[in-house]
Design a protein around this nucleic acid. Structure first.
Length: 586
RNA sequence: GGGGCUGUAGCUCAGCUGGUUAGAGUGCCGGUCUGUCACACCGGAGGCCGCGGGUUCAAGUCCCGUCAGCCCCGCCA
């Protein structure tokens, strides 16, 4: 039907006849001469309609053509006059002199509540309208580009992992509910009245079974479902690149993932280098206050207890004597921040739970700020060069970390510090295996209950100690975003039972919930481990999009609603009855 | 579950301490126009001011509730 795509035409096509299909992006009717911008997924080309080359009936058609209608155009590709070229368009050196025009799909005005074409600088239509009229929103070149990139990244994932010896294997979408972790999306069974499937939160157990079955290396572009409240970077259904490999240690997993990420970033036009940096969890918390530090910037947290206590600042001295520390940031050039900026930083710290944020600015030899009156504190002792700023807060490490991470990011933003690199990847490892619920004090999984303990901490674990036990768990962090996480799994059924027991899950309960995994582990399990990449987030970052909704064709709203197709919906009583369900709207 | 922001013409927005006929740009309709590319110019139509209640002589504007979208906290092993 077509000879070319609109966006493909170039100077080399001049002199050829083409047949194009596309949407009327814009129309400029100059009276005797009409220009159409014809759009398809590859781009836009100008179609010129004029009495010298266009028959009168086609001219007539073009005069009444509405934007967003679908047309088939035939004509000759001609070079534009020198002064009429458009350097901002990929096809701007040429145009198509149309002599045939068929209107295939007339776009009715009422069917176009939101514009596809948008004036430069104008805000996009409300998100609600964009989602409601998704078929129109998706016509916009940005979203076409984003989804094209998503496609290329998916294909690159397949080729990269395939050439590393991975098999793509699908796992069930209808699976077994898991009481731990996120809430499951549940699916009632018609055949087994009163029983339910769950949609997978991830294919975790299935991929372990595949390793035990001897497939050696598995990946899947897995759809996952979690019934939890949404965020800008969280959708109820999402895609992860799910990976598992046998006979591996963490280094082997890192190497696979580094190869994959080199390929993905290359696909988006970025050259990055491996191996990635490694940071133990403890160091990340100590130097950045978070387990997903943005390592593009050099500013780091430091322990200021020695420097700032014993000098008559009561809040600091008290924190130290009750087991806390004074921690903060030395910010080169930070003295340039205004008083208003410093107040804003203090607000950030307090918002994050700090008691306050004390400041010390050095300009020349002059020290100013609340810390300037500390006894015997000099610029040298404080470690400040001319123009530097010191920020400090005191308390338990959890409190100061939680506060100083956002303070650090706010300082970087306010000073507009230059990044030392555009792409800062790092592995964060040596996570604790357990964590405590801050309210109940109960011990919980820090990750999932199949994560292997660090072999160096096996002794502690055997003695029943839990506090300092590390896990063979790792996160991949990029520019302050967590791209994914993984671990080496437990392959010993006895150890698996013991870990579950430490978490208060009895043997009987363990068998009821995870029996199929335990049974498999007893049948000869290879050492194995893997990783899961948050694919939507990767696409979002590489596309430069601000929301996951801009890299997902049909996303949900923050209330987990699908506006375009209007889901979820009520069911007929007959349908409910068949599923043995009653809706109680009390 | 909690907090914040937003809701005015098809779309994007303005609308002051409550005051007479609710505006702009764009799109749309009609007209002029042969080198535009945000075409230009002339004219026109277009409003449940999200919804419900209240205060007031008077509400787009103030108050209460509610719905929707977005952002954040909790949550997301």
């Amino acid at each position: 039907m077509r000879s070319h795509r609109c966006g493909a035409l170039r100077a080399e096509h001049v002199g050829t006849r083409v047949r194009l299909g596309g949407w009327v992006h814009r129309r400029r009717d100059l009276g005797g001469l009409i220009f159409l911008d014809l759009r398809d997924r590859d781009g836009i080309v100008q179609v010129a309609i004029g009495p010298e080359w266009t028959p009168p009936e086609v001219l007539e058609l073009a005069t009444n053509l509405s934007t967003e209608s679908v047309v088939l155009v035939s004509g000759a590709v001609v070079g534009r006059p020198e002064e009429a070229r458009n350097p901002d368009m990929a096809t701007g050196d040429v145009e198509v002199h149309a002599d045939r025009l068929e209107v295939i799909g007339q776009a009715e005005l009422e069917a176009l509540p939101i514009p596809v074409w948008r004036t430069k600088g104008e805000d996009p239509p409300a998100e609600e309208l964009r989602l409601l009229h998704r078929h129109l929103d998706l016509r916009r070149p940005e979203l076409q580009r984003n989804l094209a990139l998503r496609h290329r990244l998916l294909q690159r994932t397949r080729t990269a992992l395939t050439s590393l010896g991975f098999y793509e294997i699908e796992t069930p979408i209808l699976t077994k509910p898991t009481p731990e972790g996120a809430r499951d999306y549940l699916v009632p069974s018609r055949v087994h009245r009163g029983q339910f499937y769950a949609l997978p939160q991830s294919p975790q157990i299935y991929k372990q079974i595949l390793m035990i079955s001897g497939f050696d290396r598995y990946f899947q572009l897995a759809r996952c479902f979690r019934d939890e409240d949404l965020r800008a970077d969280r959708q109820p259904e999402f895609t992860q690149i799910d990976i598992e490999a046998s006979f591996v240690a963490p280094d082997d997993v890192y190497s696979v993932l580094e190869t994959l990420f080199l390929a993905l970033w290359d696909e988006a036009g970025h050259s990055i280098t491996a191996p990635f940096r490694r940071i133990p969890f403890h160091d990340a918390m100590e130097h950045y206050g978070t387990d997903k530090p943005d390592l593009r910037y050099e500013v780091m947290l430091t322990d200021l207890s020695d420097v700032l206590t014993g000098r008559g600042f009561r809040a600091f001295d008290e924190a130290l004597s009750s087991g806390g520390r004074v921690r903060g940031l030395r910010v080169p050039g930070g003295a340039a921040l205004s008083r208003r900026d410093l107040e804003a930083l203090t607000a950030v710290a307090k918002e994050a739970g700090a008691g306050g944020l004390a400041t010390l600015r050095r300009k020349g030899t002059n020290l100013s700020g609340p810390l300037a009156k500390l006894e015997g504190l000099s610029a040298e002792i404080a470690g400040l060069d001319d123009g530097d700023l010191l920020l400090a807060t005191a308390g338990a490490d959890e409190v100061t970390s939680r506060a100083l991470d956002p303070v650090r990011r706010a300082v970087i933003a306010r000073l507009d510090l230059p990044p030392t690199t555009a792409h800062a990847f790092a592995w964060v490892d040596e996570f604790p295996l357990f964590e405590r619920d801050p309210e109940t004090g109960a011990v919980m999984f820090a990750h999932h209950p199949f994560t292997a303990p660090h072999p160096a901490d096996a002794g502690q674990l055997l003695r029943g100690e839990r506090a300092g036990v590390r896990a063979l768990h790792y996160d991949l962090v990029y520019n302050g975003h967590e791209l994914g996480s993984g671990s080496i799994r437990i392959t010993d059924a006895e150890l698996q039972l013991r870990i579950l027991e430490l978490l208060g899950i009895s043997k009987a309960e363990a068998h009821q919930r995870f029996g199929f995994l335990l049974r498999a582990l007893r049948a000869g399990a290879p050492p194995h481990g893997g990783f899961a990449v948050g694919f939507d987030r990767v696409v979002m970052l590489l596309a430069g999009a601000e929301s996951l909704r801009d890299v997902i064709a049909f996303p949900k709203t923050t209330a987990a609603r699908a506006l375009f197709e209007d889901a979820p919906t009520d069911l007929d009583p007959a349908e409910l009855n068949e599923l043995a369900l009653k809706v109680d709207n009390a």
